[in-house]
Every structure is written in C-alpha cells, then in structure tokens.
Simulated assay, not measured.
Amino acid sequence: MLMSNTKRPAKLHYMANGFRVLSTGDHVLCAVSGAAIALDDLRYWDVAEQHPFATAELASEAMAPR
C-alpha cells in the first residue's frame, strides 16, 4: 500500500544552507503563526532552534535579541 504525503506534516532537520527530510510530508507548520508552509515554499528557518517560519518578517521577529 502506498502512503500519500498529502496533508501530512514533514519532519525536517534544518541546516545553514538547506534542510534534510527526516519524515516525509508535504508541509511544515510555522513556529509563530501555525500556518502550513509547503516544502517547496519554505525559505526561512532557525537552525539553532530548529523552527520554520512562513515569512521573513516572522523569522526576524522570532529571532530578534530580547
């Protein structure tokens, strides 16, 4: 039986210049907004905290020094 990756979140390992798929899926959830981000559209993440972000603005806000 083939498993569909549609509507299933992926588990990723985020690295400085890309990410590695640990568990297949078609999206990840933004750490700030909770919005689904298609893997093809994923551009922003925090390597240290291993969190994805939907937009550059959300990533900047989340990673700003406190």
Results as ranks from 00 to 15, higher is better:
4 S>C: 13
4 S>V: 08
5 N>D: 04
5 N>L: 00
5 N>P: 14
6 T>Y: 00
6 T>K: 09
7 K>E: 14
7 K>D: 08
7 K>I: 05
7 K>P: 07
7 K>H: 13
7 K>L: 03
7 K>C: 14
7 K>Q: 10
8 R>Q: 06
8 R>I: 00
8 R>F: 10
8 R>S: 08
9 P>K: 10
9 P>C: 06
10 A>D: 10
10 A>V: 01
10 A>W: 09
10 A>H: 12
11 K>N: 12
11 K>T: 13
11 K>M: 07
12 L>D: 13
12 L>Y: 03
12 L>G: 10
12 L>P: 06
12 L>V: 12
12 L>R: 02
12 L>W: 03
13 H>D: 13
13 H>A: 11
13 H>Y: 09
13 H>R: 15
14 Y>P: 00
14 Y>N: 04
14 Y>K: 05
14 Y>E: 02
14 Y>D: 15
14 Y>C: 08
15 M>H: 09
15 M>I: 08
15 M>E: 13
15 M>Q: 13
15 M>L: 11
15 M>Y: 01
16 A>C: 06
16 A>T: 13
16 A>H: 14
17 N>D: 10
17 N>R: 09
17 N>L: 14
17 N>T: 09
18 G>E: 15
18 G>H: 03
18 G>A: 03
19 F>N: 11
19 F>D: 10
19 F>E: 13
19 F>I: 01
19 F>A: 05
19 F>H: 04
20 R>M: 14
20 R>N: 11
20 R>K: 08
20 R>Y: 12
20 R>T: 15
20 R>H: 12
21 V>P: 02
21 V>S: 11
21 V>Y: 02
22 L>R: 07
22 L>N: 11
22 L>G: 03
22 L>H: 09
23 S>G: 12
23 S>T: 09
23 S>P: 02
23 S>L: 09
23 S>Y: 05
23 S>M: 14
23 S>Q: 11
24 T>K: 07
24 T>A: 15
24 T>Q: 09
25 G>Y: 03
25 G>W: 06
25 G>E: 05
25 G>T: 02
25 G>L: 00
26 D>F: 01
26 D>W: 07
26 D>H: 04
26 D>M: 06
27 H>Q: 03
27 H>L: 00
27 H>W: 01
27 H>Y: 11
27 H>T: 04
28 V>M: 04
28 V>D: 00
28 V>G: 00
28 V>T: 02
28 V>K: 01
29 L>K: 07
29 L>G: 07
29 L>R: 05
29 L>W: 00
30 C>Q: 01
30 C>P: 06
30 C>K: 05
30 C>S: 03
31 A>C: 15
31 A>F: 04
32 V>L: 14
32 V>M: 04
32 V>A: 05
32 V>Q: 06
33 S>P: 11
33 S>T: 02
33 S>F: 00
33 S>G: 10
33 S>M: 01
33 S>C: 01
33 S>A: 04
33 S>Q: 04
33 S>Y: 01
33 S>K: 06
